[in-house]
Amino acid sequence: MTVQVKICGVGHPGAVQAAVKGGARYIGLVFYDRSPRHVAPPLAAELARMVPTGVRTVGLFVDPSNEYLEHVVSQVPLDLIQLHGDESPARVAEIKAAFSMPVMKAIKVSSVADLDVVDAYAEVADRLLFDAKPPAKVSALPGGNGIAFDWTILTGRTWSKPWMLSGGLTIANVAEAIAISGAQSIDVSSGVEDRPGHKDPDLILDFLRAAGR
């Protein structure tokens, strides 16, 4: 089966064009102001309008209020809301109901025990995303830190909802990550950047090739 790829944290037209040209299935826009990949809604709307039918536009949020979600979705045409903070299963269900939009919930992983919460989120989210748990330091972001977790934690596991692998994926390790984890969808952000927050079109194309697109 062909692996679906999400290029997350795009911030300029060249990145969108490379992702689409290379066969990415998802384009991610980050709406979290502490991230170097943060995009304001007016620019995000321009980028989203470049995304063709058949490619899904994902908005990444971290513990957002309904007011902020409304502020963004009223301006930016999104297909999927990604929740990357400490949102509870109840909050995931609330957001899904309030905005009538599919929701993907990020689960932060460093050990097998971190998977204990998965079933509760699978009941309410449309998709799951497994990302490396951020390092315990004040400057760490909820995601996009360029670190991986032990992919064998996911080997042979199945859940009731489709899931995506994220965290520290690069051109050099993506094929191994897919083989070990069994992921059918993957997400990359810092692994296709030439500097923090800036996607390199050539790296995007190389990554998509390495992922088998």
Rank of each mutant, 00 (worst) to 15 (best):
M101Q: 09
P89E: 10
K96G: 10
G59V: 12
R91H: 10
V103R: 04
D63N: 15
V72G: 04
D79A: 02
A113C: 00
I95V: 15
V109E: 01
A97S: 12
D63Q: 11
G85N: 11
V62F: 05
T53H: 13
K96T: 00
K105L: 00
L47G: 13
V76K: 09
A44E: 06
V92P: 05
S100I: 07
V55A: 10
V76T: 11
P64A: 05
V76G: 05
L80R: 07
L60D: 03
A45H: 08
V92H: 08
A44Q: 05
D114L: 07
Q75E: 15
S88Y: 15
K108Q: 09
L83H: 09
A97Q: 12
M101D: 01
E87Y: 14
P64K: 04
K105T: 05
A113S: 12
T53A: 14
A113V: 02
P102L: 10
G54L: 15
S110Y: 00
R56L: 14
M104Q: 13
E70A: 05
E94M: 06
L47C: 15
D86Q: 14
E70D: 05
L69S: 02
E94R: 08
P52N: 14
G85R: 14
E67F: 00
V58Q: 04
V112Q: 08
S88Q: 14
L69A: 01
A93R: 10
V73R: 13
P52R: 14
M104L: 15
S100N: 12
L43H: 07
M101T: 10
Q75P: 03
D79E: 09
V55P: 11
D63A: 07
R56W: 13
L83M: 14
A90I: 11
A113I: 00
L83I: 11
A113G: 02
M104G: 03
T57H: 04
A113Y: 00
S74D: 09
D114N: 06
V92N: 08
G54R: 15
I81S: 09
V92W: 08
V73I: 14
F61P: 03
D114Q: 04
M50C: 12
L43V: 13
P89V: 11
S74H: 08
R91K: 14
S111I: 00
I95D: 07
Q75V: 11
V58W: 06
E87P: 12
V76W: 07
M50A: 12
